[in-house]
Amino acid sequence: MPQLNPNPWFPIMLTSWLVYSLVIQPKLLAFLTTNPPNKMNTPTKTPSWPWPWS
């Protein structure tokens, strides 16, 4: 059963995860967001819905 042999795919998977976590991920996280979050904490008060049966 070839699917139980971890020799061909395990080193490839391990290498790809190491490359992703050590090389690609820090480069992606270094980008600044184009739309920074707004720091205003003023919640908007929405009016209640006028239900006709209440």
Rank of each mutant, 00 (worst) to 15 (best):
V19H: 06
L28R: 14
V19L: 12
P26Q: 01
P8V: 01
K27I: 13
L18K: 12
L14F: 03
K27W: 12
S16L: 15
N38R: 08
A30F: 04
K39Q: 07
T33A: 09
Y20S: 06
P37D: 04
M40E: 14
W9A: 06
M13V: 09
W9E: 01
N35C: 06
L22V: 08
L18G: 10
P36G: 02
S16E: 12
L28S: 06
I24K: 01
Y20V: 04
P36N: 01
P37N: 03
N38E: 10
P37C: 03
W17S: 12
Q25A: 13
N35M: 04
V23D: 03
K27P: 00
N35T: 11
P11C: 03
K27Y: 10
L14D: 02
N7C: 04
W9F: 08
N35P: 00
K27C: 09
F10N: 12
P11F: 04
P11V: 02
I12V: 15
S16D: 12
N5L: 13
L14G: 03
P11R: 05
P6A: 10
L32I: 00
W17V: 14
I24T: 05
Y20P: 00
V23K: 05
T34W: 11
K27T: 04
T15V: 04
P26T: 02
P6G: 09
W17D: 07
I24C: 00
L28A: 12
L14K: 13
L18R: 08
L18N: 09
L28D: 04
Y20L: 15
T33K: 06
S16H: 10
W17K: 07
M13A: 13
I12N: 09
A30G: 15
N7D: 14
Y20E: 03
K39L: 14
Q25V: 07
T34D: 15
P8R: 04
T33W: 02
M13P: 00
P26K: 00
F31G: 04
A30D: 11
K39H: 02
W17H: 10
T33N: 09
P8Y: 04
N7K: 15
N38G: 02
F10R: 15
N38F: 07
T34F: 14
T33I: 09
W9R: 06
N38K: 08
F10Q: 14
N5T: 03
M13Q: 10
P6W: 05
S21C: 07
M13F: 08
W17N: 13
L29Y: 05
T15K: 13
F31R: 14
W17Y: 11
S16V: 10
T34R: 14
V23Q: 05
Q25L: 15
V23S: 08
T15E: 12
Q25Y: 09
P37G: 02
Q25P: 00
N7V: 15
P37S: 05
N35Y: 04
K27G: 08
M13C: 03
F10S: 08
W9V: 04
L22K: 11
T33V: 13
P8A: 07
L28F: 13
N5F: 06
L28E: 11
V23G: 08
M40A: 12
